[in-house]
Design a protein around this nucleic acid. Structure first.
Lengths: 139, 139
DNA sequence: TCGCTAATGCAAAAGCTTCTCATTTCTATA
DNA sequence: TATAGAAATGAGAAGCTTTTGCATTAGCGA
């Protein structure tokens, strides 16, 4: 049960938090906006407000349960944190999102930060392009 | 004169566009929000609306004159495009922004995109950390 | 210089996110 | 198991950044 997960993260095991966690688990691998999580809740006949969705997602982020990304467009998307850092490649046509991990880039980033005297806390790398499918569809 | 630059970019040389271009040139190397550009205009006693600032910055972006970035926080920042792509390193304490270029990372990105079948159009890499000054000030 | 088209200013609106506060829910304790 | 205190929630208002609609103004070619 996810009750333990929440407790372990220092969060009370409330109904909204459990439901939201369950949704994120169901959509693992996808990137959801707060609004989308909210819609899922509505579809499950859960009476949970959008404000709570935002609050809970932010708490989950702070607790390290989910990762928040800012893809181009200005809004936030969330995904369950699978523990391993990864970066993103996005299709500018269809919005598809792929994930990747590259040790070389990770290393270089550390080196760059170190050289500049920065104590690195985080990083985000987005590659934008046209995915294979969309290339086909255009010709 | 920047009149030519605008014409060359396919934009009419209007007063607002010239003024905004001048401000961006004056603040070269910095990253400005639309609001900040607007304030600069007010200080210069220019009667230019915020909506126009947004419109002009977007046109400049499309014309390739400026680059738009989405640092964490949700809003856009703009900087004059110096022609050469670079990435960013941001201090999470003071907001300082440093720029860097790294060929190795550029190469790896291309390779990753290619391997996934993506036709890369753009990318953005942000390294977040604590800058040297802020490390000192904390202890 | 004149007129047409594009650009601008203003204010209203839109989209995402946060805040306020009265009410409800947890959790620890008796 | 009932209870009190603290924390969390719901609903809607508010906040911020950005966009849009429309009447007015300005740029540019003839």
């Amino acid at each position: 049960m996810s009750q333990q997960e929440l407790k372990k993260a220092g969060l009370k095991a409330t109904v909204p938090r459990l439901k939201i966690l369950k949704i994120l688990e169901a959509k693992q691998g996808q990137h959801m906006r707060a609004e989308e999580v909210y819609k899922c809740l509505l579809e499950s006949d859960e009476d949970i407000g959008l404000a709570t969705v935002y609050r809970v997602l932010t708490q989950f982020e702070q607790a390290g349960l989910v990762a928040r990304h800012h893809f181009d467009g200005g809004h936030s998307v969330f995904e369950l944190d699978q523990g391993e850092h990864h970066d993103h490649m996005l299709c500018v046509k269809c919005g598809r999102v792929d994930e990747f991990v590259d040790e070389t880039i990770e290393e270089r980033q550390k080196a760059i930060a170190e050289k500049a005297g920065y104590k690195i806390t985080d990083h985000s790398l987005y590659i934008y392009g046209v995915c294979p499918d969309c290339q086909k569809n255009v010709g």
